[in-house]
Design a binder for these strands. Sequence first.
RNA 1: GUGGGUGUAGCUCAGUUGGUUAGAGCGCCGGAUUGUGGUUCCGGAGGUCGGCGGUUCAAUUCCGCUCAUCCACCCCA
Length: 426
Amino acid sequence: MATSAFSRLPGFRDFAPEDFALRSHIFDAWRQTSRRYGFLEYDGPPLELLDLYVEKSGEEIVGQLYNFVDKGDRPVALRPEMTPSLARILGDRSRGMAKPIRWFSIPQLFRYERQQRGRLREHFQLNVDIVGEASVHADAEVVAVGIDALRALGLTSADFYARVSDRRLLSVVLGACGVDETRLPAAFAVVDKLERQPRDKSHERLMAEAGLDADAANGALDLFEAKGLAAVTQRFGHRDDVGPALEPLHEYVKALEAMGLGDYVEVDLGIVRGLAYYTGIVFELFDRKGELRAICGGGRYDRLLELVGGEPLPAVGFGMGDVVLGELLRDRGLVPEYKRDLDYYIVVVSEEQRPQALSIAHRLREGGARVAYSLGEQSVGKQMKAAQKEGAREVLVIGPDEVARGCVRSRDMTTGEERDIAVDAL
RNA sequence: GUGGGUGUAGCUCAGUUGGUUAGAGCGCCGGAUUGUGGUUCCGGAGGUCGGCGGUUCAAUUCCGCUCAUCCACCCCA
């Protein structure tokens, strides 16, 4: 493979028109869906102070950031996610804003990691957030946007589904299983890994890291493998701590069912999500075949705004990346065929007619039409070929005869039909 | 960051058990067709066989390193 002296940085993409078409297709669906729910679009700078990320995720995340010291000696980083920026932006102005705040954004995000399928060093992510509303209906609304954004791209419940959990419920269930409060973070980490490691390994870790005995660990694993809320309700529903903690998820699922999105939702307490700032219901969208990484992930983060120095406001949101989504659309044959599209191609028979051709082209363009013509001197046959390649729907031929008669010869490129059109009628 | 697979034309891939000028299809450019596209036919351009080094009379082929890419791990925004 011939490599130019300036190769593309690993994990970064070029978007030639064919690639850009898919990107636009995805962005259009994201924007239209978000707006249908009343969300407003915003953006922030791609470069932020490093501390914004260290603050909420801890020092260790720095290893995955594109960070450097700028010329003003400020430690800065390319944004790896949007939520901290959102929290910062709102921190400055949320006090004066009507609640709930419904905002969305499509930022390009960066992370310095080894790339793999569905995971690059740069991607675009739809971020949808509701700030200032603690009701579970905000949680339901947000996940509904995520589901509908995918439906807008032609995906159905046969292609993907949401797995939802609630960290508060998970905490009390683990407590009921016998996990000591101080061991909860460790237990969360084991639960997060449940699907990616064999059961006996999880069992071992629950004992070693979460402090459970063999029976308790088995009981907990049975509970998580059962999915759904039934097993938890049956076993712990009567308890004062677990019983009430089941309510939010029940209401959440009921709301989504009322929207007609019940087929898309499955309760699965094994969904934890890595980020430390989530405080309540969390969810991830996966392809049904389980071939790809999570398409989307989010949840409630009621303390983040305060943490970043803003007004204490409850919040819920998600991020949906364009990379995994693009893979899924490709796999399901849902990428629209790329085709060039032009309203008119003007064929100039000889150079004497070029001024008339330019005049017509300009008039048509002012009317909003997409118009092109050969920029060099070429045979009519060549120009026809070019018109075909550029996807022209109609060709306007202008030669000495046409000029003499004050018309152009129009050819419909689909039917091949030709007719004269008076120049004034264009 | 760790381990493994892969790397031949713009794209998808043949091929070379180490031996003169490395091939196909698609795409691109030109011609048949100097006032009419799609089809067809003919022709052409395009490759330091990812890079560097080693072994050899000879390396695209074997070896080492490196880079890129893919998979698993790690991590997950």
